[in-house]
């Protein structure tokens, strides 16, 4: 089963996430990750959805998504060159004597310490899913207290982009 990355532009309207998530649930499609936030336009959000499945399934996912009125544009960018990132925050057990060692590990992954407790340290780290996984595994022996990941966001490389067409940009109105 291949993983596909869909870049989806949706109306920034209440319930749009429920519509998309509900569609995946009721049609039995598995979401690997879903990241959503507004774009440079206040009325449009972008969802980066990672789905696992074969070609016919991904085609069906795309077509079903298109049927949602609030979905404006879908691009399967898997086959294209793209940059993808994920952000993770990890709170790890760190006795005062372990801090230097842990900071050293963090340095390897270019993670930054963002908080310090009497017995914990919190790091942020960005990168591809693989790098984040490796960072997580490196910290696991110290005891991970809490971990939060954003899910993948992605963007096409070079001058290609996934954006509204001029006509779509004009039709700004939506209920």
């Amino acid at each position: 089963m291949e993983k596909h990355t869909l870049s989806v532009l949706v109306e920034n309207s209440p319930g749009v996430l429920t519509r998309v998530a509900g569609l995946f649930a009721r049609r039995g499609f598995n979401i690997d990750s879903l990241a959503v936030g507004r774009t440079d336009r206040a009325d449009v959000s972008r969802m980066t959805i990672v789905v696992e499945g074969d070609k016919p399934l991904i085609e069906q996912v795309t077509k079903q998504l298109h049927k949602l009125i609030d979905v404006i544009k879908i691009s399967n960018i898997t086959e294209d060159e793209y940059v993808d990132r994920e952000l993770v925050m990890i709170k790890v057990t760190a006795e005062p004597g372990q801090r230097v060692e842990i900071l050293h590990i963090a340095g390897i992954f270019r993670a930054r310490a963002v908080d310090l407790g009497s017995k914990t340290m919190t790091f942020e780290c960005t990168g591809t899913g693989g790098k984040i996984n490796a960072f997580e595994e490196s910290l696991r022996p110290y005891g991970i207290k809490e971990l939060v990941r954003t899910g993948k966001i992605a963007m096409l490389r070079g001058s290609k982009f996934v954006a509204l067409s001029p006509a779509q940009a004009r039709d700004a109105e939506s209920a």
């Binding site: 009125i69 979905v71 404006i72 039709d171 939506s174």
Partner: peptide
């Protein structure tokens, strides 16, 4: 409200 019925629909996702 002040009532005005639109003559066209604008649905960029449909």
């Amino acid at each position: 409200i002040s009532f005005k019925y639109p003559s066209t629909v604008k649905l960029r996702g449909y």
